[in-house]
């Protein structure tokens, strides 16, 4: 298993971070919610791992920006 970078699929802002940094997450667990064009875009974990965050709430993100990383556990 290797490190997984989670990228933003939209340009927008980080509205809410819903998972704890350092937490072990499983595939599908909600990590954060982004906002773009008045919509909330959920960012689920694509796999399992230990979460580290690359953004803070309110931060502006572009398409492809890494918003979080999952380290193998």
């Amino acid at each position: 298993m290797s490190r997984i970078d989670i990228q933003s699929a939209v340009a927008g802002t980080v509205w809410q971070i819903t998972a704890e940094p350092g937490a072990r997450v499983g595939a599908g667990d909600l990590i954060m919610i982004l906002e773009s064009m008045k919509l909330e875009i959920e960012v689920p974990a694509p796999g399992a791992g230990r979460l580290s965050l690359a953004v803070t709430e309110g931060q502006v993100v572009s398409v492809g920006d890494v918003v979080a990383t999952l380290e193998p556990v």
Partner: peptide, 13 residues
């Protein structure tokens, strides 16, 4: 709308 036609995710630019 400015969004992708499959997942309906916003698209800007």
């Amino acid at each position: 709308c400015a969004e992708d036609p499959d997942r309906f995710l916003p698209s800007t630019g």
